[in-house]
Each structure stands twice: as structure tokens, then as C-alpha cells.
């Protein structure tokens, strides 16, 4: 709670010390008096602390103010964008887990081989390629030259009454997932490497168990424990909406909304987005802790 308040305060201060949206709202020929009048009307001429207190009072009642641009409640706009972001984040996370964990396991269980070097290389590559550059390259290759995917936007089809994205999600999700893939690959590799040297793995081998069983019940189950927190953090990062990816692919998610809101100085919209994002991050940390208890019996509460 205190964390949430802190985030809101920071966002509020940073927004207001960089000016206000009034100059963008009036026509170019407006007189200083007209501008001042609009400021007065919107309340931007009051002391910052009073404005913040005002914002908080409304916020706890569920009112995050209205977007200047859309002339709609800011939170409503945020909530509208959430499904698209959740879709993109989930798809990206799924891809990252599939690719990252696989690469990590292959590398970690064959230390100091070519496979391992490849895994480490891929992990590093995933974390260092700039996503905006990768997004553009993907569009050029797969959309423009090969024509396999649409260049931008979110197309949907209906299944059981739900609007689900079609293949248009693949490129942005892939571009978004790459950083997480790299991180997961590296962490999985080191987790597997560590667990492989544990004495209980020697015990498992001394029991004459098959390779499959040693991997599934001993190595992977134990390696999963440190990965859970990484996946939790990464998912909250993905869910906060990627500004670059959503902008490049015109994906109608939170990141896209935030980018727009910041560039148009749409204060209330930025604040609502920040509020929601922090809520998601905090919530996911809680969920991560709960999942921990499921996997690691040592931290189960009695």
C-alpha cells in the first residue's frame, strides 16, 4: 500500500514538474489570459500538494479523473486496453518459457560443450538485442518480404464468444519475449547446473533410476524453485505493457496508451496507467510467493 502511494507520488511529481497540458490544449493563438483561465478551470494553478491530495481523495473513490484527449474517465480507458496487453504478455511469457527454459536445460545439463556455449550465446543475445530494432527487422522480414504476418494491429477471431487474437499476435509477442527468453535461459542454465551437482542427484543415480525420472523428479523440480521468482518478475514486466513493441506494432494495449498519454501530457491517463501497473506488479509478487509454497514444501506454512 505504501509502495503504491510512493509510486503515485513519484509519477505525480515527475509529471507536474515538467509542465502541464494546458499549452497543448489551447489553440496556438491563445492569449496568456486565456491560458491562465484554462489553468484556473482545470485546477493546475493550485499548490502541488493540494492537487495531489485532491487526486488521492478521488482515486480512493475509484475516480482517476478524465482524460483530456478522449474526454472519458481515465481508468475506463486503461481497463479497455488491458485484455490486449494481457494477451500479448501471456503469449510472450509462454514463448519465453518454452524457448528459454528449453535452452537453459540443454545448456545446463551439458556444461562446457558446444551446446552449452550456444545456450549461453543465445541467452546473452536475447537480453542484448534492442526490442525496437528487432521488432522492425521482424516486420521487414516476415511481414513485408514473406508476407506471413500482418505488419501491425490486432486482428481477432471469435471462439466461444471470446475475441481472441489471430496470428497477428505472433510477431509482437516474439519480439517482446526475447529479453525474457534470454534471462530465463541464463537462469535456468545456472539453476540446472547447480542442482546437477547436488548430492541428492548422486543419490538418485545411485538408486539406479532412469534418466527421465532423474530429470523430471530431481533436477527440473528443484531447478524450478529459483525460476519462479524470475518468471513472476518477468511477467509483471511484460504485463506493464511494452511501450516500444506496442507502438511499433500498433498493438492496442497499455504501453501504447501510456506512450500516447505521455506525449499528449494527458496527466490523469498517465496516473491511472501508473496506478494500474503498480497494482499488477505488487499483485504478481504476491501470486509468486503463493506459487513458491506449492512447489517448495520447505516454505509451506503450517
Amino acid at each position: 500500500m505504501a509502495l503504491l502511494l510512493g509510486v503515485l507520488f513519484m509519477v505525480f511529481i515527475l509529471l507536474h514538474i515538467t509542465g502541464d497540458p494546458v499549452s497543448l490544449m489551447v489553440s496556438r493563438h491563445a492569449s496568456p489570459a486565456e491560458i491562465e483561465a484554462l489553468r484556473e478551470e482545470l485546477g493546475f494553478n493550485r499548490p502541488l500538494m493540494v492537487q495531489f491530495a485532491d487526486f488521492l481523495t478521488d482515486a480512493v473513490q475509484g475516480d482517476f479523473g478524465r482524460s483530456f484527449r478522449y474526454r472519458q474517465p481515465a481508468m475506463g480507458l486503461v481497463l479497455e486496453r488491458i485484455p490486449a496487453t494481457i494477451e500479448l504478455a501471456s503469449a510472450a511469457l509462454l514463448m519465453a518459457i518454452l524457448m528459454g527454459v528449453t535452452i537453459g536445460i540443454l545448456g545446463g545439463s551439458n556444461p562446457n560443450t558446444i551446446l552449452d556455449s550456444l545456450a549461453r550465446g543465445l541467452g546473452l543475445l536475447g537480453q542484448t538485442i534492442p526490442t525496437f530494432w528487432l521488432g522492425l527487422i521482424l516486420i521487414i522480414i516476415f511481414s513485408l518480404h514473406l508476407g506471413w504476418f500482418p505488419t501491425y494491429g490486432r486482428n481477432t477471431f471469435v471462439l466461444f464468444g471470446m475475441h481472441l487474437p489471430d496470428k497477428s499476435i505472433i510477431l509482437p509477442a516474439f519480439a517482446l519475449s526475447l529479453f525474457t527468453t534470454g534471462q530465463l535461459a541464463r537462469f535456468t542454465r545456472s539453476a540446472v547446473l547447480e542442482v546437477m551437482n547436488e548430492e541428492y542427484v548422486t543419490t538418485a543415480r545411485s538408486k539406479g533410476l532412469g534418466k527421465m525420472r532423474i530429470y523430471s523428479r530431481y533436477i527440473l523440480k528443484n531447478s524450478a524453485i529459483p525460476l519462479i521468482s524470475i518468471i513472476g518478475v518477468q511477467f509483471s514486466y511484460l504485463l506493464s505493457g511494452s511501450i516500444y513493441i506496442e507502438t511499433i506494432f500498433s498493438w492496442p494495449g497499455l504501453g501504447n496508451l501510456l506512450a500516447e498519454a505521455v506525449s499528449t501530457r494527458d496527466f490523469f491517463l498517465v496516473q491511472a496507467t501508473a496506478f494500474f501497473t503498480s497494482l499488477v506488479v505488487i499483485g504478481l509478487h504476491l501470486v509468486t510467493d503463493l506459487i513458491y509454497m506449492l512447489v517448495d514444501p520447505r516454505i509451506r506454512y503450517r
Binding site: E199, T203, S206, V295, P297
Partner: peptide, 15 residues
């Protein structure tokens, strides 16, 4: 079969 010195580290903690 084998038994080891440190039974805590020799048993799988998650099963």
C-alpha cells in the same frame, strides 16, 4: 546401494 554422510543433502527436498 549407497548411503551418504549428509542425509539432508542426499534426499530430494521437493518430493
Amino acid at each position: 546401494s549407497l548411503i551418504f554422510q549428509d542425509a539432508l543433502r542426499s534426499l530430494n527436498p521437493v518430493t
